[in-house]
Nucleic acid binder design. Structure first.
Lengths: 151, 151
DNA sequence: TTGCTTAATGCAATTTGGTTGCAAATATAC
DNA sequence: GTATATTTGCAACCAAATTGCATTAAGCAA
């Protein structure tokens, strides 16, 4: 069998049933839009919304492309999505402050109600207790109020 | 001066300027839509979105009315708004578990990534430390993963 | 370098979520 | 019951996000 893209065959034998699994590997491409948007987010002090990215990139690319690039960057684990308490979606770069014991992704953010900025608080480590019939995979901790600049 | 609704006059004297302030008291009315929507939210195990409320109420009222009723219920402090990690807005009834020391409104929720349900975790009390150049007014703590039903 | 394959983009159209203005309906006080 | 202001329904509007499809271009191999 021949394919133009990269692929691998896996073989497993389960319950006397032979399975050949074809894994097609999608090659991720680097484009001008993608690198520019990632640059913007990683160099920004605060988390950025789609409209903010659109204004900052100007006519670099279509707004639909921005959506698709953001989606890809999330899949590649280069950025993460933040929802502010009012439901606005923002994007920030990942710093990978994982909980070493349980490999839980921690997101600690501060959302200023005055200037509407969202900042990652990498130094803050929240602690909590939860009934063990829940499986926690991600911790999303958003504090809101006034940031140092607006206080 | 005469008004059909309730009102009070306040008088203050500040910097040699006399101010008469008229405070008009809006009377809140109970309607079929309002009671039905509040019933729905208070009796629901999980937080509900606008579309979910719309489906559950059927043709009880217009979708605009739902928005306006929800807004009023929030103002009356009977329900509160929750933003899930992906940016979806949901509504749940208030249980008033305030932080006794700082009078900060605590919102602790669990968001299931499989059934997309959002539940209030009233028993969980997160602890944290934050640089004191921030003024924290509200704490929004959302854990995500798998809920007991989906585990 | 050239050509091939498939990922990524642009554009238009569409869907979804939420808001606003205004006339009509209705809850509450008297 | 009547008066009055609140609430509702409807239509229109707006912004945010998604989808389909033809076109463009990134990256691999020869």
């Amino acid at each position: 069998m021949q394919f133009g893209c990269k692929y691998t065959w896996y073989f497993i034998n389960r319950n006397n049933v032979a399975l050949y699994i074809l894994v097609i590997m999608k090659t991720i491409r680097n484009t001008a839009s993608k690198t520019a948007i990632l640059e913007l987010i990683t160099h920004s002090e605060v988390a950025l919304s789609h409209v903010e990215i659109q204004k900052l990139t100007g006519d670099l690319c279509d707004r639909v492309t921005i959506y698709r690039v953001l989606e890809r960057l999330i899949n590649e684990d280069l950025i993460h999505k933040i929802a502010t308490p009012d439901g606005t979606v923002k994007y920030a770069s990942c710093h990978h402050h994982h909980d070493n014991h349980h490999h839980i992704h921690n997101h600690v953010h501060f959302s200023c109600e005055k200037c509407l900025s969202v900042t990652c608080l990498d130094s803050v480590e929240p602690s909590y207790k939860i009934p063990d019939n829940y499986l926690v995979k991600e911790v999303n901790f958003t504090l809101s109020g006034l940031c140092p600049k607006c206080i």
